[in-house]
């Protein structure tokens, strides 16, 4: 039975630092994700032109770009360990929960960097009207937490299956759909000068529920 429920902040911090360092050495994951996001963005912008007055389309496109960039990159954290055969080494020094929390924090950081590049570029390229920054940033933050929470856990599952990459998008999509729906309608509401409180609460509640369920399930990710 898994008995690694112990969670030491030091071990989580060590995992996070290790993730950042190995990512920084190659910058493979980040480069791939950024290229992917920028490619999607340019394709959308080129194909649809400037859509300054169509905020309903804009909010949908923004979240589709972010969702695709997430799906393309966040399973990477676990798949890399499996492909490099470094997972058993990692598991000697930390419990499954510590590893997963470290990876979750890394994924959050990763999404943050991705959004710092993608979102301003999106607003400029698509000719979007200026958002209400408070609501907009809160939607982005809460959406990212929910995206990172579910894709970390599902990335951990997918890394142990056949055909890892192909399956990840299909399997994590249903879990991410409520996030996508709430984030899109909240983003649209803030552009239309409507209240977005319901969507913010929905995103916060769903993110918290995903996070809590993940913390309970992380211990079962690997067999002893």
């Amino acid at each position: 039975m898994p008995n690694g429920a112990s969670r030491s902040p030091a071990a989580v911090w060590a995992i996070l630092r290790k993730e950042c360092r190995s990512e920084w050495r190659t910058r493979y994951g980040l480069n791939a994700a950024l290229l992917f996001a920028v490619t999607t963005l340019v394709a959308v912008s080129f194909g649809a032109g400037r859509l300054g007055d169509r905020v309903d389309v804009l909010s949908a496109l923004l979240w589709i770009v972010l969702l695709f960039a997430t799906l393309a990159s966040l399973s990477h954290a676990f798949v890399r360990e499996v492909e490099g055969q470094t997972l058993s080494m990692l598991r000697r020094v930390a419990s499954p929960t510590e590893i997963a929390i470290g990876k979750l924090l890394f994924n959050l950081l990763f999404l943050g960097v991705l959004e710092i590049v993608t979102v301003p570029l999106f607003l400029i390229l698509m000719g979007a009207p200026s958002p209400r920054w408070g609501t907009f940033l809160a939607l982005l933050a809460l959406g990212s937490v929910a995206l990172a929470a579910s894709s970390t856990l599902i990335g951990g599952l997918i890394a142990q299956t056949r055909g890892r990459g192909a399956l990840f998008a299909g399997v994590s999509f249903p879990v991410l759909l409520p996030v996508l729906a709430a984030a899109v309608s909240g983003t649209r509401a803030q552009w239309q000068q409507l209240p977005a409180g319901g969507e913010l609460r929905l995103l916060a509640a769903y993110g918290a529920a995903l996070m809590a369920a993940s913390l309970l399930l992380y211990d079962h990710l690997w067999e002893e």
Binding site: I154, V175, A205, H220, E223
Partner: peptide, 25 residues
């Protein structure tokens, strides 16, 4: 996508639990 029964049982159990989070919403 998983051949080995015990691993399939464990991983799909985790997925089923996390998927159910979305149901009440």
């Amino acid at each position: 996508a998983i051949d080995e029964p015990v691993r399939r049982a464990r991983l799909s159990a985790i997925y089923s639990a996390i998927a159910f989070v979305s149901v009440p919403f």
